[in-house]
Amino acid sequence: MTDSLLRGVEDASRSLEKVLLGKQQQIRLALTCLLSQGHLLIEDLPGMGKTTLAHGLARVLGLEDQRVQFTSDMLPADIIGVSVFEPANGEFRFHAGPVFCQLLLADEINRTTPKTQSALLEAMEEGQVTADGHSYRLPKPFFVIATQNPVTQFGTFPLPESQLDRFLMRISLGYPAPEVERQLLLGGDTRAMLDDLPRSLTPNDLLDIQERCSQVHASSSVIDYLQRLIQFTRDSELFSYGVSPRGGLALLRSARTWAWLDGRTHLVPEDIQQVLEPVIGHRIRPAEEVGSHAGARLVNELLAQVDVLG
């Protein structure tokens, strides 16, 4: 049973690699994020394949997806839905918005106003939305994959820390390697390939996997290491603030999934090291502002300074 699930994930991963060439690491991180029941934030310049990755994930995981392109004049009702008066029976009827799906692709989330951004907040954290004083439950599982442009670009509203914290991971795709790019230019239409992607898992499989990942054994040595890492972000002069307890839990959850994807039933420090940057990169801030992507450098510093063995 375990094997079939694992094989399903591997199939999904391989399928995605066909549409997103040379990005095995990012694909695996994205899968880890979703399998850990977390929301994913993909941050990169336009045209790097963010949407392709999000669509592909929805396909291979067999999730019913909706896409919302965020613009600066968007209102919360455009996402959540709106109550409309029906003259026929003299009542208001709620017309569900795009948020009612299993995987919501929120494209360019930082192009919209904070008001609309925060409408997503409840959905992400509580799994429900409120409109006109009435709460509506969202389907299960429910994922948000948001993409955003780097904050230095024009016309962006940076996501506040509170909202960044709701994303389990933040990844960026980056430019492809030259030989990969050549392959991409020679290759066919990725859009058509997207539609041909086989569905490798069902929503039920996802819930099973999540159950299995939470059972991965974390020894005290690993927990100590994780704690040392978090403590370092709190004590060190390099950070203006450290990782929150929620950040620590997110790190452990993601590392467990990563270990499970490796076919292991126990955690090793490498699992934490692999997911460290995506999980805490957007939850820390360097003491001195040295550019928007100081996070990666800071995480490298963190890894170099904290001894694995204690």
Binding site: V268, P269, Q305, V306, L309
Partner: peptide, 9 residues
């Protein structure tokens, strides 16, 4: 051994 290296690595 680098401090971020496990025994395995």
């Amino acid at each position: 051994r680098a401090s971020n290296e496990t025994i395995q690595a």
